[in-house]
Design a protein around this nucleic acid. Structure first.
Lengths: 180, 180
DNA sequence: GTCTATATAGGGATAGAC
DNA sequence: GTCTATCCCTATATAGAC
């Protein structure tokens, strides 16, 4: 199995269990590789695995979210493209967010700067679209933050209530919310 | 030390580290009690400690959040009271939410129904206020959900960016958001 | 590159003295 | 009610065969 596919499997574990909850047993089971095989790919162990999954999330942002946002289509279409991508990534609210998982526990201290970078790039990309529509910089910044806030909050509520409807609604309303 | 105060210290650990990240070592250090002393209060161990902190959160809701919401003041004032209470509880966005922490890992499976109950009670209390102002039931429900979503999302963003300004802004705008 | 085997530390939990 | 001492298990990590 390629390293990329291995990381994708690790990612599923870390997003669900967080940093401390992702034991080598779970990571091993998820990848189908025994402990020492994982150490072949990630010599520095669990911390390196977690860092790799964050890099994986970063690449998802760069490859799947940013390009549509920075395309030349109509702002509303670009924001709708983002909504669709997000909806798929989180399986309509069934899956949690890696960043939210790493906010708790050691993940926060170990990967704080990596997480900050991802969030800021995402926010700035949304700000870029909004400024094109004439929204003043300050409000564009707040609205972009609101988008991330609503996505993250909706994921928590969906998981907490075991009901995805609120997440689907939020994702659906996101483009209109941003433009008005 | 009283059991109540012990639970308050346990709560701080669980909200920060999540269920799996809250080791007996950390719980022991935070309370100033050695392992076996904790087992005196919580014979069933860590799982019982976590359940007690959730009950602690539930009591915070019942004692500090619901009464102002269900008082006879003006709706806007009751919602502002909620905002203030929330802002204190989360120390202006510095502290994370226990529910959000338990959404990840085993906490989700162990305490799912307890978490669902807390969220639903909270939402229904907000719905109650909004319906008084003439907002139709369906929109009241969505707006109440949006309140929880924004609080949870803002906490994640604040932690992720290590910047509380977005949280403070959300809390500030919450009453107006709910009524318009 | 994947495995078996093993090392060492820390995990949760219990018995029993005071 | 708090402690010391100890149990067993799982955690992370490493060595080295194939």
């Amino acid at each position: 199995m390629s390293k990329e596919k291995t990381i994708a499997k690790l990612f599923k574990v870390f997003r669900k269990y967080g940093y401390e909850g992702s034991t080598l047993s779970r990571l091993s089971e998820a990848t189908g590789l025994v402990r020492s095989s994982l150490y072949h790919y990630f010599p520095k162990g669990k911390e390196e695995m977690a860092a790799a999954t964050l890099e994986y999330a970063n690449q998802w942002l760069n490859n799947s979210v940013l390009p549509p946002l920075q395309s030349r289509g109509k702002p509303i279409d670009r924001l709708k493209a983002m909504s669709n991508t997000i909806n798929e990534f989180y399986h309509g609210g069934e899956e949690t967010c890696l960043l939210a998982a790493f906010v708790h526990g050691e993940g926060s201290e170990l990967f704080g700067s990596q997480m900050k970078q991802i969030l800021n790039i995402w926010i700035e990309a949304i700000v870029g679209v909004l400024k094109e529509t004439g929204i003043p910089e300050k409000y564009a910044q707040e609205k972009a933050e609101n988008a991330i806030i609503q996505i993250q909050g909706a994921l928590i509520l969906a998981k907490g209530l075991e009901d995805r409807t609120a997440f689907v609604r939020i994702i659906d309303q996101l483009p209109q919310m941003l433009l008005h």
